[in-house]
Amino acid sequence: MSGVVASHGVTGAQDAGAFLVRLTRLDPGAVVRLRSYRGRTDLWAMLPWNVLVSRSVDGEGPGDATVVAADLLSQLARGGRSLPARRDADWRWGLPPEGARSVERLPAAEVRRIAAAAAGTLRDASEHGVGGQPVGARALRDALLDHVAIVVTTDSTERIEISQRLVQGVTRMGFLGGRPSSEESDLSDVHVRVAGRWVGLAAPYGVAWLPAVNQLGLRPATPHTFG
């Protein structure tokens, strides 16, 4: 007796496709985890620089399943409904807990500027070295990604550090949207979120997450500053 072919259950093909195209460009062999809830499906993936990214799309989804991202993209591109071969054992990462809270709002233009400055620094150092001395590309990239790009400080002196890894996550996955505008609205702002020991950047089209550098008892407080 033939088995029933499972459906991926994603109806927001355009949104899912945008996520998967970016992901597979960065990592052709990436896997994506689909988790469903109340008529929506969250797509989760790990980027090559160890940042967890997520986008919510329309569709009942398959419940909870991990597949090869390129296979799911192929299904969506041809209008297929079948869930690709499951690769649940290939998902090796935890997820942030529910109940994330926003502790600061950053202008999207500032996040774009920080990302562009990092790209320029990497390009310049790759061409000219540091202090006139050559630097290995991998070591240079890792040092740049680990750089703390933004520090959010609450009035109770708590510090939330946002590394360049998160900034690159939201920008290179296209979570900020299209071309920057000189009058970007509040809807395009990026929110700093905290969920348990995780810190995230939530942009209009997706979220990037990393475990917090320090185990801090963070709580929202006003006013907030960042620098």
Rank of each mutant, 00 (worst) to 15 (best):
G3N: 00
G3Y: 00
S7W: 02
H8F: 00
V10A: 00
G17Q: 07
A18R: 14
F19S: 05
V21Q: 11
V32T: 12
R35W: 05
S36D: 04
S36A: 14
Y37F: 10
G39H: 09
T41L: 05
L43N: 07
W44R: 04
M46F: 06
W49Y: 15
N50Q: 15
V51Q: 01
R55E: 10
D58E: 13
D58Q: 11
D58P: 01
E60I: 15
E60V: 15
G61P: 01
P62T: 02
S74K: 10
L76N: 05
G80T: 07
S82C: 08
L83R: 01
P84S: 03
R87N: 07
R87C: 12
D88K: 07
A89S: 12
W93I: 07
V103A: 04
V103F: 10
A109V: 08
V111S: 05
A115V: 08
A115M: 06
A119S: 15
T121H: 15
R123H: 14
G129V: 04
V130Y: 14
G131P: 08
G132A: 06
P134Y: 01
P134S: 13
L144I: 15
H147W: 14
A149I: 09
I150A: 09
I150S: 06
S156A: 10
R159E: 12
V167G: 05
G169N: 03
G169C: 03
L176V: 04
R179K: 14
S185Y: 03
D189H: 11
V192Q: 02
A195N: 04
R197Q: 11
V199N: 05
L201E: 00
L201M: 01
A203N: 02
Y205D: 10
V207W: 10
V207L: 08
L216S: 14
G217L: 13
L218W: 15
P220K: 03
P220S: 01
